[in-house]
């Protein structure tokens, strides 16, 4: 059973442990600006919303890459950027309708969530259970994926 990140924004306190864990996992430093998961702060509503890649089935980023730099990890289902191959053209960053693959000027490459090879640091770091790593069928990502379907060509089912 593949697992995926489950996000329950109601449990998020905005502590940014996930962003720090992501930054540390990938870059060895605690710099939240480098994080691939982001907490959005709706100040007026007092709401914090963690947000990162859902590893959508459509794989817009992977499909758009002109040089085959984004691959599917068959074990985790993650779409993973191979930095050595990425030329930094950024086409994936405008193709992804979720805005979850982004260009990093310092490296000249793009970055996105890769599920940390099946042990996501953000989920481990989250102290309130707002981010958990659970069986894919069980998550609330269905709604997000339904939205992905709207962006899609509504023809995949008939293919």
């Amino acid at each position: 059973m593949q697992k995926s990140l489950h996000i329950d924004a109601n449990k998020c306190t905005g502590c940014l442990q996930c962003e720090m864990a992501c930054s540390y996992e990938n870059y060895g430093v605690f710099i939240t600006a480098k994080s691939r998961i982001k907490i959005f702060d709706f100040e007026n509503e007092g709401r914090k919303v963690p947000y990162t890649c859902t590893q959508c089935a459509e794989a817009w980023c992977l499909m758009a890459c002109p040089v085959d730099a984004i691959r599917l990890d068959a074990v985790t289902g993650a779409k993973v950027v191979n930095e050595a191959t990425c030329v930094g053209c950024k086409v994936c960053t405008i193709a992804c309708p979720f805005g979850t693959i982004n260009y990093v000027a310092a490296t000249g490459k793009v970055q996105k969530c890769d599920l940390c090879d099946g042990d996501p640091a953000c989920a481990t770091a989250c102290p309130t259970g707002a981010i958990t790593y659970v069986d894919a069928d069980w998550t609330g990502f269905d709604k997000m994926r339904a939205w992905a379907g709207k962006t899609d060509n509504a023809t995949r089912a008939s293919a």
Binding site: C96, F98, I101, V104
Partner: peptide, 10 residues
């Protein structure tokens, strides 16, 4: 702008 620009497409 390089962060999250994909949502404009979405």
């Amino acid at each position: 702008w390089t962060d999250h620009v994909g949502v404009l497409r979405g």
